[in-house]
Structure formats: C-alpha cells, structure tokens
Amino acid sequence: VLKALERTRQLDIPDEKTMPVLMKLLEEAGGNWSYIKLDNYTALVDAIYSVED
C-alpha cells in the first residue's frame, strides 16, 4: 500500500482519492497485487483518473 501511495503522491494525487480506488481494484483483483503493480501502478493511476472524469 505504501508504494502505491508513494507513486500517486508523485503525481499530486491525495491519499483520500487513492485509497478508495485502490481498495476497489484490490477487491476486483481478488487481492492480487500483480495487476495493480504493473508498469509502476499504471492501472491504479488510470483508475483514479477515470473516476475523476
């Protein structure tokens, strides 16, 4: 979780936006981090930006 938060902080995305999206992605992935961690957490960042749209 810390590495995911560090990555999104680099992009000026607050933890308050990151955590709900991260928890949803983890739930959808059955707790499997490998998809979320791919390409420096690209799936997480993309999911956060899609929620903002």
Rank of each mutant, 00 (worst) to 15 (best):
L5I: 04
P20A: 11
T18I: 06
I13M: 04
M19F: 09
T42V: 11
S50Y: 10
E27K: 11
A43E: 05
D46C: 14
Q10K: 10
E6K: 08
E6M: 12
V1A: 06
I48K: 01
Y41T: 01
P20F: 12
A43W: 08
L11W: 06
V45Q: 02
G31T: 05
A43K: 12
V1Y: 12
Y49M: 14
A43R: 12
V21A: 07
T18Q: 02
R7D: 03
L22G: 00
S34A: 14
V1M: 12
E28V: 09
R9M: 04
L2E: 15
M19V: 09
K24R: 15
Q10T: 08
L26I: 08
Q10P: 02
A29H: 15
L2H: 12
L44R: 00
D12C: 15
D15E: 03
E6V: 08
N32K: 07
D15R: 03
S50M: 12
G30A: 09
S34D: 15
G30D: 10
V1G: 04
L38D: 10
M23K: 10
L38Y: 12
L5N: 02
I36Y: 03
V21G: 00
V45F: 05
W33F: 06
I36A: 02
G31D: 07
Y41G: 01
A29D: 06
G31K: 05
K24N: 07
A47W: 04
V1W: 15
P14Y: 04
W33C: 01
P20W: 11
I48H: 00
A47I: 04
W33E: 00
D53C: 15
L22H: 01
Q10C: 09
T42R: 15
N40V: 05
L38K: 15
A29T: 15
V51H: 11
G30T: 05
R9K: 04
L11D: 03
K3N: 12
Y35Q: 12
E52D: 13
A29Q: 13
P20G: 09
V21L: 07
N32H: 07
N40F: 06
E6C: 11
Y35I: 12
R7F: 13
A47D: 02
A4R: 02
V45H: 02
L22I: 06
V1I: 15
K37I: 15
D46I: 13
S34F: 14
M19Y: 10
D39V: 05
D53N: 14
D15F: 06
I48Y: 03
V45D: 01
V45S: 01
